[in-house]
Amino acid sequence: MAKISRKHRSTGRRSPLATVALLAIGLLTTGGAYALATTTATAESQAAAANEQLIEEGKKLFAANCASCHGLNLEGSKEGPALVGVGALAVDFQVGTGRMPMAFQGPQAARKAPQFTQDQIDAMAAYVASSGPGPALPDERFLEATGDAAKGAELFRINCAMCHNVAGAGGALTEGKWAPQLKGLDARYIYGAMVTGPQAMPVFNDLNISPEEKRDIITYLDYVSENPSVGGFDLGSLGPVSEGLFIWIFGLGGLVAITVWLTARSN
């Protein structure tokens, strides 16, 4: 997963300044618990100008692509929630996984190919973040799969598995919603989902699951994605239902075909 996130960064066309600017904007506008104060803020003054430009660009993109549902001033409408104070991380998750903009109104926005470049997403994130304090992008070190997989697995089972399945295969929710599968997912989006609680998913803030623990969970999911199923093909990790269907259709089905051959008159 860490590998994927590195690749992801290299594909963006943004200048290094943009990153600094984004961090700076986060620092300027957020405070308290969500400010990831671990980064330095030395480039504050130079970045301010670049920031303004980025926010302006994001605002334009937002007005063109998002405002019909979320309102020109992020105030929301019947079609979409207000976005004041949801933070840059929420935008990064929703737009980066292609969930936003939604293809159509349904029980849930599905994951699809992202509709914007990372630069554009960053611009919109900066714009939304400028509206009020909200979670910003996490420190890179919490996205590396270098934590304790065993601890992550335990936390995953207690906090995540009931919706996403112990192997991250996903599951059903009420009224047509679902918890998506998690295998091979970019670490920043796993992190982003936990912090921002997109759609039906509840929020797991840093006092519930600390950033280190979030890294452990990412490590466990990375382990599951990287290591093949030990016993052979995993039949979708869906548990006994797929196993039962398999034994009836292929196991018993195959043996019945053999009985037909076995009892047929040979010529």
Partner: peptide
């Protein structure tokens, strides 16, 4: 007793 997995099912014959 606290966790549970989505898709918790018995083997097919108890289904």
């Amino acid at each position: 007793p606290s966790p549970v997995s989505a898709g918790t099912q018995p083997d097919w014959y108890i289904g």
